[in-house]
Amino acid sequence: MTTNTRTATGLTLRKDGPSTVILEMCSVRVGQTLFGIPITHILEIVGGTIPQAVPLAPDFVGGLVHYRGDVLTTVSLRQLLGLPVIGGKYDILVLESASGSFGLLVDSVGEVLTVSASDHEPNPSILDERRRTLFAGAYKLKQGLLVMLDPERLDPVRLGAAAA
């Protein structure tokens, strides 16, 4: 008999056979890479928005978007990864962090993938310094790698402090 227990952290424990932890990740695409973010951290996904640029803001700031009566600061993943910044519309993940919510600009949002914790690998040692601070390892999927992003490390306040 299979019982699914949903814990507060959104983990699904399947109690059949060896204890495999199943996680749900929202997949997003930026450039060629497929990234994953735990769905538990995502407040909302806003599609097709053009962020308003903020002159003199740090490079990683992708601009401002209007979100539910508030003005949300966004972080440009392209900019963080050193990819060419394309103008036009972005999909925005509204994430929650310790210092409040912020938006993450991605090229497109894909489906929610279920991954098994046993497929996780930490960041490889040859990864460059910058990426190592942003990524939280990767999941080996059949169709390729799902690179994990850590929302806490994408927090603009933290990025701002690191840049300073």
Partner: peptide
Amino acid sequence: KPLSGVLKSIGLYSG
């Protein structure tokens, strides 16, 4: 509307 700390620290915008 208030701005996040990162943008407030630019110093030119009040909101």
